[in-house]
Simulated assay, not measured.
Amino acid sequence: MVEEKKPRRPRRSDTDEFKVGVVRLVVEERKPVSQVARDLDLTLSALRTRVDQAQAGGQGQAGGADECGAASAHEAAQAGA
């Protein structure tokens, strides 16, 4: 018996606003990660990783350069100049 592989999912490129909103659904609205992933057709592992990164950062934001981080970096650069 030969198993057929599922075709690969096309790679998505979501906006930063979408990523932040998805994390907020899980963190602030306390929706289950599995439900949000299913409802928005996201992979469970990608969503868990994003939520974990946001919680580790303590901002409730998606990982990476968010609006607060960008503003803080800009202020720090101006203070040092």
Rank of each mutant, 00 (worst) to 15 (best):
residue 1 M to W: 01
residue 3 E to Q: 15
residue 3 E to P: 11
residue 4 E to C: 09
residue 7 P to Y: 02
residue 7 P to T: 09
residue 9 R to F: 05
residue 9 R to C: 10
residue 10 P to H: 07
residue 10 P to M: 09
residue 11 R to Q: 15
residue 12 R to T: 14
residue 13 S to W: 12
residue 14 D to I: 11
residue 14 D to M: 13
residue 17 E to N: 10
residue 17 E to H: 10
residue 18 F to S: 11
residue 19 K to E: 02
residue 20 V to I: 11
residue 20 V to Y: 02
residue 22 V to D: 04
residue 24 R to A: 11
residue 25 L to C: 10
residue 26 V to S: 05
residue 29 E to N: 13
residue 30 R to F: 04
residue 30 R to V: 12
residue 32 P to C: 06
residue 34 S to R: 11
residue 35 Q to N: 08
residue 36 V to A: 09
residue 38 R to V: 01
residue 40 L to D: 00
residue 42 L to A: 03
residue 43 T to G: 13
residue 43 T to R: 06
residue 45 S to G: 08
residue 45 S to R: 11
residue 48 R to K: 15
residue 51 V to R: 04
residue 52 D to T: 12
residue 53 Q to T: 02
residue 53 Q to H: 09
residue 54 A to L: 04
residue 54 A to F: 00
residue 54 A to I: 05
residue 55 Q to E: 13
residue 55 Q to F: 02
residue 57 G to L: 07
residue 59 Q to E: 14
residue 59 Q to S: 15
residue 60 G to N: 03
residue 61 Q to C: 14
residue 64 G to H: 00
residue 66 D to S: 12
residue 68 C to L: 14
residue 69 G to W: 02
residue 70 A to S: 05
residue 71 A to M: 06
residue 73 A to F: 04
residue 73 A to Y: 04
residue 73 A to M: 09
residue 76 A to I: 05
residue 77 A to S: 09
residue 77 A to Y: 02
residue 77 A to I: 01
residue 78 Q to P: 00
residue 79 A to I: 03
residue 80 G to T: 11
residue 80 G to L: 14
residue 81 A to F: 06
